[in-house]
Design a protein around this nucleic acid. Sequence first.
DNA 1: TAGAATTACGGAGGACGTAAGAATA
DNA 2: TATTCTTACGTCCTCCGTAATTCTA
Lengths: 298, 298
Amino acid sequence: MDPHLLRTFVAVLDHRSFSTAASALGYTQSAVSQHIAALETDLGTRLVERRPVAPTPAGARLMEHVPALLLRLDAARADIARLNQVPTSRLALACSPAALGTVVARALARLRAGTRVDVEVRVLSREAVIGDVLTARADLGLIDGITAPSDPLPLPDLGPTTTTLAAAEEPLAVILPLDHPLAERRSLRLPDLTQAQWIDAPDSAVPLERLRTVCRADGFTSRIRHRGTDLFGLAALAAAGHGLAALPLSSATALPAVAAVRIGAPRLIHRTELVHPANPTAPVRQLIDLILGTSPIT
Amino acid sequence: MDPHLLRTFVAVLDHRSFSTAASALGYTQSAVSQHIAALETDLGTRLVERRPVAPTPAGARLMEHVPALLLRLDAARADIARLNQVPTSRLALACSPAALGTVVARALARLRAGTRVDVEVRVLSREAVIGDVLTARADLGLIDGITAPSDPLPLPDLGPTTTTLAAAEEPLAVILPLDHPLAERRSLRLPDLTQAQWIDAPDSAVPLERLRTVCRADGFTSRIRHRGTDLFGLAALAAAGHGLAALPLSSATALPAVAAVRIGAPRLIHRTELVHPANPTAPVRQLIDLILGTSPIT
DNA sequence: TAGAATTACGGAGGACGTAAGAATA
DNA sequence: TATTCTTACGTCCTCCGTAATTCTA
């Protein structure tokens, strides 16, 4: 269970090929083959089916552990490195698309008027935001999600290094084509939309899986999966009638060519939360305060 | 950051000595020295102060990651092993002391009358219970803790392999010497007890750290720290006036020579939760149902 | 000065590349 | 049959133990 072997393992399953995984990692195919064989011998089970390359049940199970494990390993290394680093003048802020609209834009407007700090904003999926903060590729992260009003967002284990503070809350909405029969409604009940056609846009909108969880219902089927953090592209798909998507109300109303209808029930809120190192440097602390200061809550 | 190096790292800090860590691990002192040196070279910082052996700040930080990391690694291995294992006739049940009193005893009484399943009960600290379930040393775990009525217990990251279900809820209480001025009270407010003398018994009672968190208050100081899972020993200490301890009401009232007074405010409940593999085998599933069936809530 | 960690060095084993051999679509 | 993974084998390098050395309480 050497980390090198585990990295090779995920690369092989990601690329669905030993040879391309090898070149991606800078190894020969032979080495990759030996890595997988070593892992399989160690664990006493076949992990990868070959030709075509696919995980066995045991491999799939292992895959549920390994990415988190490797992330945690990188996080530990980054955490140590952060202790001895010199503070840079430019801060890196990673955020999910909806977080940008609900919080970041407002905070940065204040920033321009205020202190002289350079900020680089990077828009990523939620998972990538967390990864960037954990591995110190970003100084600060903002992610969004939906929950019951008093609950925290369900975040994966962040280790001892990061904590979260609420930064903004707002109602949840769905976007629909302007000519959709429900487009004129003041509000909608989410359970009534389980049978509708949705767009699964886990990087930019609320993931459908999450909607199923909070509704405790199946459904929310989708024919189109939209990867990437491009909210306007998502709006274009929705406007063309390919399906619905759930977004915070302010983002939803700002999008062109779609109607935004508020979700009235169940009682859910969309919240943007901060993900930051446990020991923020002074400039990071300053940026955190700025973001919290401009947020409607706290 | 080879896992072997990390294991020696924790062993060195645990034993506060290179040589005893070496013999504990079956290495020579030399090998341990080289392991630590390799880690320090890799991370570019000194991690361990020598003579006396103690963590540097960077080492302490690393120590916040490594045990969780190694546990997760063992959990992954155990999870794979569990897939191909033959079911045994004897089930191992790990539980924290208060969980034994509130749930396990009752469930096992039913078990004796019912199906023919052997159960081995093991009483451990909460952390050890989780560790045992994750690494498949136990088939099922029960841990207890306190929270606000609707919140889940704050558990460390269990990975994809285990989930929890509520098994029992009851009021929280403190135990006091029989002649304590507050012993006759019907109920007490926890914030009024921050300045009292407590016994820190994190393995058997509610950890003081947890009391501070839920009260959002400092205080709860202790002169005595009680390790281990021996509730009667804890009661003896409390009876002798060494300090207070927080327990579920039923456990508290069952203890000899101490008064049990209910905590009226803040509104907190003591809950026992199940920790079990994601894919329980039939006999484990049966035991889970038995425990949930005998619990006051389902 | 004794106990304890480090450094030097050598052998055994492991890791990776080259290249030849099997297997499957 | 071509592509892709596996196996054989040689080299280099890493890892650990022995033993000599340095450090510090």
